[in-house]
Amino acid sequence: MDSFSLGPLLPDVEIAIGLYNNVSNCKDLKEKISEGNLCIALVKAEMIVDTFQLLVAASKAFYHEVEKQLKTRTVFTEILYNLSPSNKISECFKLFGVNDTAENIIVVCRKNDSSSVRSEVQGNLVSLSLLDKICDKELVKKLYKITESEVSVSPLVDCVVSQMIAKEVK
């Protein structure tokens, strides 16, 4: 997994992000998360254009944790919520969460937990650069309501993160 610092907003927070394919135990992982035994976010890899998209969602989540402004139960569910262009909480899990049989997933956790998290996931850890191939860009455009005119003047990841942040003032 690759680690990232969330400075300057949160100089003390470091997170790890890993992209996995051929994952076989999503159901297990999800159960452990809901029991509170695993502090990670599981994200549907097809919905992620670039690592930066995750960093924006995670920065906002950890920031709102410090500020006591979380809208969902944990900082990790908040990451999924922040990824979503909609303010409906239930919708974000459907759109960005993984289903029991998902094979391409992204795991986000605190850096200190990354070695134990790695032992939990049964699948191949691959380079985050493969996101470019795995991402379903047409679906992403549709979901975030990104117009062709917008993509013509701005990289897709910038369109996506702007939409993610702008939902706060909807």
Binding site: S152, S154, C159, S162, Q163, I165, A166, V169
Partner: peptide, 21 residues
């Protein structure tokens, strides 16, 4: 924020938004 986004949607270059407090 609203105007930046509305401009982007019609193909006018505006800076991307990364964070808001």
């Amino acid at each position: 924020i609203r105007a930046l986004q509305r401009c982007r949607k019609v193909g006018i270059c505006t800076p991307a938004i990364y964070f808001v407090d």
